[in-house]
């Protein structure tokens, strides 16, 4: 059921919790699909909506953003700012016709290597089912065509 499609997923992770959690997955030699490529930021609060859109524009089939659990932020409250911004990001993605399963925002701590691996496995499966993302321009054309067809 893989229909040969290997999705590309960009993971934007905060240095202190989620990136360290991904490191722990490695240190624990947990196996997960190679489809995710990780970008490090110091805090999930650094993540701009444009980072997510850029990924979809440049060929990502899915995007994961992950930070420290609420209350655990290395910078006290950057993750809360991300959580607030996330509402906007989700709306923005919906307006581009990007399916929900292609974007995920999670909290993963430095000790949750197993959870990180599991999140990647789940997400790769979900995006695989959704199929390749045609790109922002193509998706907007699809939307316009569907609108015109009504």
């Amino acid at each position: 059921m893989t229909n040969g499609f290997e999705p590309k997923i960009v993971g934007i992770l905060c240095n202190w919790c989620s990136y360290a959690g991904a490191d722990l997955a490695g240190i624990s030699r947990l196996k997960y699909p190679a489809n995710i490529r990780i970008i490090r930021v110091m805090c999930s609060g650094r993540v701009e909506p444009s980072f997510v859109l850029k990924a979809f524009q440049k060929g990502a089939d899915g995007v994961l953003v992950s930070g420290c659990h609420p209350g655990d932020c290395h910078y006290m409250e950057g993750n809360y700012k991300m959580a607030r911004r996330n509402v906007f990001i989700e709306e923005l993605l919906a307006s581009f016709g990007i399916e929900k399963g292609r974007y995920r925002q999670t909290w993963i701590s430095a000790s949750e290597g197993e959870i990180f691996a599991q999140v990647v496995r789940e997400m790769v499966e979900e995006v695989r089912k959704l199929g390749p993302f045609p790109g922002l321009g193509a998706r907007l054309k699809e939307l316009a065509a569907a609108e015109g067809g009504k």
């Binding site: 930021v41 609060g45 650094r46 701009e48 444009s50 700012k81 991300m82």
Partner: peptide, 21 residues
């Protein structure tokens, strides 16, 4: 250097060194 400010700057004036946009 968390960069929360940079992520919210509407005019793109704010940046974080070594983690620039």
């Amino acid at each position: 250097g968390c960069g929360t400010c940079a992520a919210s700057c509407g005019s793109g004036a704010l940046n974080v060194r070594h983690f620039t946009r």
